[in-house]
Amino acid sequence: MQQMTRRADPAPSRWAYKVQRMWLTPSFRMGLRMGLPVMVVALAAATYLGNEQRRTDLFASIEAVKRDFQERPEFMVQMMAVDGANDKTLKTIQELMPASFPLSSFDLNLNDLRDEIRKIDAVKDVSLQIRSGGVLQVDVIERQPVALWRGPEGVEVIDEEGVRADKLDARIERPDLPLIVGDGANKNVTQALELIAAAAPIRERVRGVVRVSNRRWDLVLDRDQRILLPEKDAVRALERVIALEQAKELLTRDVTVVDMRLADRPTIRMTQVARKELLRVRGYEAED
């Protein structure tokens, strides 16, 4: 019997061949494996978000979930505890708080808040911490006022670095602090304090110290008396004057200026009345 069935052609058709070659192309496979899913997801997302209403709803729900999480009780700050601040500083700090308690710790930016508090005059340093139990712990280190400085902006309380700690309306508000005056006086508070300390025997007569031409000091007493101190060894010069006062009652006499600027030639200036009187005693008659 003759077999009439034709055997199938083993050759692939042109299209089968091309398709197989296409499948063996690495870029095509990569595109299908990665590019296609990415495109489908992107298309779906774009279609869903194309609607304005759905977009706002989505963002609102995301925001709500975020809020819910942030406002859990373990993240809430109930109160603030301030240590090391006096009443005036405490009031200022409370005014600086961004919102009223209770508020979420996610809404508190401790860095910004710390910088804000540091800007207060009376505060030298501050550390903030959210303690367990929802307490915002504020540890304040205040500036220690050591002197008053009468500067271009009025009377200021300064600490020993010369930084302003407070402002005063009148000097009489803090009679316990010594007064320093003059250009650059607030940069050399330590020297002024040394002078004040050295002048302890005549304390009740001291009105203040004056920085002259940002170089040397004058000690000002009542009755318009002035002790001009040298640039170097000012404390020793002052001690010499005080020793003279204790021995010869120099400052109690009718002197306006004790000039100690030249250590080997101390000079005093007397009042007009005292000068006439001295001349008269020595036998001269005043010309007029």
Partner: peptide, 18 residues
């Protein structure tokens, strides 16, 4: 051409590269 297609396709399939 068909024979070449057959053989090239088979060899490509075995190699796994185009």
């Amino acid at each position: 051409e068909r024979a070449i297609r057959t053989v090239v396709q088979a060899a490509q399939k075995m190699a796994g590269v185009r």
